[in-house]
Design a binder for these strands. Sequence first.
DNA 1: CTGTTAGCGCATTCAA
DNA 2: TTGAATGCGCTAACAG
Lengths: 348, 348
Amino acid sequence: MARKSRRELAKDRGDLGDLPVTVKDVALKAGVSPITVSRAIQRPELVSDATREHVLAVVRAMGYVPNLMAGALATSKSRLVAIVLPTIANSIYASVVQAIMDRLAEAGYHTLVGPSGYTPEHEEALLAAILGRRPDGIVLTGTFHTQASRERLASAGIPVVEAWDLSDDGLDMQVGFSHEQVGIAVAQHFFAKGYRRWAVIGVDDPRALRRCNAVIQRLDTLGADAVTVQTLPLPATWEVGRKGLANLLDNGEQPDFIFCSSDTVALGVLAEAATRGLNVPDDLAVLGFGDTLNGQFANPALSTVSVNATEMGLQVAEALLRRFDGQKAEASVDTGFAIIERASTGRS
Amino acid sequence: MARKSRRELAKDRGDLGDLPVTVKDVALKAGVSPITVSRAIQRPELVSDATREHVLAVVRAMGYVPNLMAGALATSKSRLVAIVLPTIANSIYASVVQAIMDRLAEAGYHTLVGPSGYTPEHEEALLAAILGRRPDGIVLTGTFHTQASRERLASAGIPVVEAWDLSDDGLDMQVGFSHEQVGIAVAQHFFAKGYRRWAVIGVDDPRALRRCNAVIQRLDTLGADAVTVQTLPLPATWEVGRKGLANLLDNGEQPDFIFCSSDTVALGVLAEAATRGLNVPDDLAVLGFGDTLNGQFANPALSTVSVNATEMGLQVAEALLRRFDGQKAEASVDTGFAIIERASTGRS
DNA sequence: CTGTTAGCGCATTCAA
DNA sequence: TTGAATGCGCTAACAG
């Protein structure tokens, strides 16, 4: 004789009020089998109009909400995408995530957001936690360090998109831009405009460093003065810009062009320049980096390099969706960047 | 004779390479039963040292990652918290979400982030999508409009936290601050400092309106001049501030104090004031609102009302965790706010 | 078009 | 301390 199920036990205890409604309950009430309920919802075309309508009416009446975890378990399709990134309390990452979520939600996918591990040990745990949910795809921003982690990811057998910047040892797919290209383009563009005494102000970040080095190298071949670099510790606040420019000036430097590691830093530079009575852009031109929101939340006078977070997020989502569809997807999508000139570099 | 299982079919097809490892596989290899593997991982204290070590070694060797969805199905505990909000591409919401995620992650919970529905119809679908994942808790920012939605949420039988602001018809728990209190405090504080010709510049947002009305009312009882209000359409950009101040001045108004609906708007006001040669704060004081990051990403000269997003997120997480623990939690937590005075209101 | 059977991967319950 | 049986809620496969 079968033991009583946990559900039955709960009912016996009188808990039946808030037990979630299941397919079975609906099926019973509608006078059909559970699978018909399932089909009426998931694959309506397989059910006759009459039955479907009736079943759906019962579904609504009972407030039935299918348990997606059970469905996922049965189909091995979670319709879940995990996004791992350092922080969303940073408007540029937030914009990318927002764009990814919007597009995926449209396609019926949910988004699991997780903070990336700071140490390799955390990385291990993080990965287990993420993969344990059996996501259909993963989006990475920032880097997974350990070889073990990378192998795990690869062997999970699901699409992985690395977003934000392009590198040469990608796991699977990449969507982003090239820091080197940014550096080169900036150097070319503003050298051509006549700026010769360059400085770079930024935080101690490997990506910023890549842009910086590209600038330096290209300017060198172009024949500008040596570039002065001010590197300050994270996080990238307005203060970094203030302090950076202050240091530069106090050292007797007289730059005519400053490339900042982010818009936030650039705003600090603008503030310090104003304090010191420097005229922007005539005495000093300032260029930011990031501008996800097309100046919406930044200073509309600030020139910047826009990496178009929305487009990036969209491409990330599309890449995943193509893969979910069984199609092949490009291994690497360059969403590029644009140099947006506004007043802060608008020297005549 | 039993039909072949789906797993076996897959193996027959030759897909066996990337089939995820299951408890069974581990158990087989380790020479124990599946349940022992489960226990070695979830409740190590129930297993002898020798077996545990051996099993865990096999687990590592095989790269076994437990399927959390199956676990959730078996235990009716998803260890998942859903966060529903309008957008994370807004630093203040992003900060709250970040704080919630950080604390929940620490406690072993994952975070499902979903964009809130814009229309009531979407709301229905959104809710089904969210509840379908059977989260252990839900965090709402922004409002769920329809009565049906509210009932659904309530009857889901899980903790619901409404974050950001306090209202009087909460569903379950609330964590946030009172817009009315902000308005009153601002009016009191700056009236006492001698400001009499007030203006409010902001976007057309119900919460901003609540603060604004509170200011007007309190100033009225205090006996300041009538408050001039400039309401512009969303979104809240720097341009709103510029345009708002421009309108005011062009109408011949001469405010000595401006309360803005957000820091972003306030920065626009500062810019327009500078353009027009107005001295801040001597001719005109400017107060922002939001300041989640303690000035980190804003103008360090801008005075503002800080609502402390990090604290709010933490409280949201704590409220949920207490409930998960079976404890009662406060229905309402007021995380308050602080008036941060910096240079833009620093009139001597 | 609809129903029956069985299993997705794990953890609870009971038994040894 | 370990194991066997069973169910969580759903859907694929197959049969009618």
